[in-house]
């Protein structure tokens, strides 16, 4: 269990709703849900997840902290915004789902190997490093995240697409050596670190 999680448990005891309201982006909207279920029916990923947004909200109110934070449901959101458009209470459901995913990640509660999370983490690291996405390193990091053998297999499977992209000048193999960066990338990194610090403070995660 992460330290952040231990600290959160101690702080909020059984009041998971309050924890969500204070620490999850747009979490203060959760209490406004009236359990109509239109979000659940509107989500194109509906058949693939465990809990619908409306059910997640109910679980939050029922204090099912671990179940919610370890759920894969919020990781499935593709930001299509169907739920937001239809919600009769105008809950920013998409944002709450991302907020929950982010929070679960911060607490280290995401099940190991959660693919969306892994991609998101790789992507984030990649983009923070140089201030821009390096497609080459990002792709390779993804292929090899399950080890060398699997990485080679993945790369071989994707080689035609990779070559095609190179031919179309959409992918530069030279980028593997670091690639180009944005101006003042350390400034950017400091900025991000500061933003995170402010946000953590605001959310009581510091």
């Amino acid at each position: 269990m992460s330290e952040a999680n231990t600290q959160a448990l101690a702080r909020y005891k059984n009041n998971f709703l309050k924890e969500v309201e204070e620490r999850v982006e747009d979490g203060q909207w959760v209490k406004m849900c009236m359990q109509c279920g239109v979000c659940a029916g509107s989500c194109p990923f509906g058949p693939h997840w465990e809990h619908s947004p409306q059910k997640i909200f109910m679980m939050i109110r029922a204090g099912k902290r671990e179940e919610v934070l370890t759920s894969d449901s919020m990781w499935m959101c593709t930001s299509c915004y169907n739920c937001i458009v239809r919600c009769p209470r105008k809950l920013p459901i998409t944002h709450i789902m991302h907020g929950l995913a982010n929070y679960a990640n911060r607490l280290g509660l995401v099940p190991k190997g959660q693919p969306t999370r892994d991609i998101a983490v790789l992507f984030w690291k990649n983009v923070v490093k140089n201030g821009r996405v390096n497609e080459m390193t990002f792709s390779l990091a993804m292929y090899f995240r399950d080890g060398l053998g699997q990485g080679i297999k993945n790369a071989m499977a994707m080689k035609d697409i990779g070559l095609g992209l190179m031919k179309a000048k959409r992918l530069n193999p030279m980028e593997i050596f670091g690639g180009h960066t944005c101006k003042d990338k350390s400034g950017l990194q400091r900025m991000i670190a500061k933003a995170r610090e402010i946000e953590d403070k605001r959310r009581g995660l510091a």
Binding site: L17, K31, M32, M34, Q35, M58, R61, A62, R89
Partner: peptide, 23 residues
């Protein structure tokens, strides 16, 4: 939850205040 008419606003107000509604 039976709050017909404008009672719906009252319901929303309670939710905003943090009252939890459990079916």
């Amino acid at each position: 939850l039976r709050v017909p008419g404008m009672g719906e606003d009252f319901y929303r107000s309670a939710q905003r205040k943090g009252v939890i509604f459990t079916k």
